[in-house]
């Protein structure tokens, strides 16, 4: 079997194992909550009939292994139950808002990649120059300012003061322009930290690649510097960047909670947050499950892309360290 296929199979198995473990952890977390599970999880709005129905559904009167089995079977089959408040199917509630969060995180990722790579290249081409220093300071400032602070100030300046962009919501469904205008500020808030982070990373790895033998060789042969960077160096310098994007996705999902709350954008973050405020735990639990699923899947994708870019990663897996 080619190393890359073996690598993908192994990573897939590991991702599945992690998911199973994560669901198990969620079960344990819920089990250890002190008090009567049905009344805690369903909250004050639940009627006694609903509570009895819930206890039946969760198998609260059965043994722990049976409960774990039931929990898994429902999680895998996507049967997340019915919302106590609206009476709607929880899965469909989640699938309604999930695209909003994915668009937000995706747009944030794109913005941070575009600006991060560009700024990193500019800094690396003139190391030690004024612009390099300025970009270095700006990068640290970008990294250290929390996303929700950035979000508030973007909202203050561009929506409330200048009235350039809409304040809240995700835009009218089916109107791409409206949705895009609602996406710009939240996605920018989400990406600021990663622009700084990627700019520093790209600068460092580009400088390293540019000092290597084969690049010096090309320079000696008179290959123009721009061509060296664009065609050879940048491609190598981007590999370490892909590796950290896995963490980046998790960070984006985490910060999306704050950004969605500030911009009152429907999404998985606002869904979980509002469910917490209303003490509606079936929704909290389902929302958490979906964020974990998204995060683990993205990490898997990042690992596979990384292995495709750098065949040494797949090969090293099969060798003892």
């Amino acid at each position: 079997m080619p190393a890359i296929v073996q690598f993908i199979v192994q990573r897939l198995a590991a991702a599945l194992l992690t998911l199973v473990g994560a669901i198990l952890l969620l079960f344990v977390i819920i089990q250890f909550v002190p008090g009567d599970l049905a009344s805690i999880l369903l909250g004050p709005r639940a009627t006694p009939e609903l509570r009895a129905q819930f206890a039946e559904r969760m198998g609260l009167d059965r043994s722990i292994p049976e409960q774990i089995f039931l929990f898994f079977r429902r999680a895998v089959s996507g049967d997340l139950g019915t919302d106590v408040v609206t009476g709607r199917d929880i899965l469909s509630i989640i699938l309604d808002v999930l695209p909003n969060t994915l668009q937000l995180a995706g747009a944030g990722l794109l913005i941070s990649l575009a600006f991060g790579i560009a700024l990193g290249c500019i800094a690396a081409l003139k190391p030690g120059s004024l612009i390099d220093t300025v970009l270095g300071v700006a990068s640290v400032a970008f990294i250290t300012t929390p996303a929700f602070v950035v979000a508030i100030f973007l909202l203050l300046i561009f929506s409330l003061k200048l009235h350039w962009l809409p304040v809240t919501g995700a835009g009218a469904p089916g109107d791409p322009l409206d949705r895009l205008s609602h996406l710009i500020l939240p996605a920018t808030a989400l990406s600021i930290g990663w622009i700084g982070y990627l700019a520093r990373l790209v600068r460092a790895s580009l400088l390293e690649v540019l000092s290597e033998q084969h690049v010096r060789m090309m320079r000696a042969y008179g290959v123009p510097e721009g061509r060296i960077v664009r065609h050879f160096a940048l491609r190598l310098a981007l590999v370490p960047m892909v590796a950290v994007m896995g963490i980046g996705v998790g960070d984006m999902i985490s910060n999306a909670v704050f950004v969605e709350i500030i911009f009152a954008r429907p999404g998985i973050g606002t869904l979980i947050y509002n469910a917490i405020l209303n003490r509606n735990f079936p929704i909290v639990q389902a929302g958490i499950l979906f964020t974990v699923l998204t995060y683990v899947t993205c990490n898997l994708l990042v690992d596979v892309i990384n292995a495709l870019l750098d065949p040494r990663i797949a090969r090293s897996l099969n060798k003892p360290a």
Binding site: A14, G21, A22, G250, I253, I276, R279, V284, I288, V292
Partner: peptide, 23 residues
Amino acid sequence: IVLFDIISAYPAVILAMGLIALY
């Protein structure tokens, strides 16, 4: 190692929100 991987499989803020909401 598996336990560490499982905890890190949750986006940090989401796990914190869930735990604090429950406990």
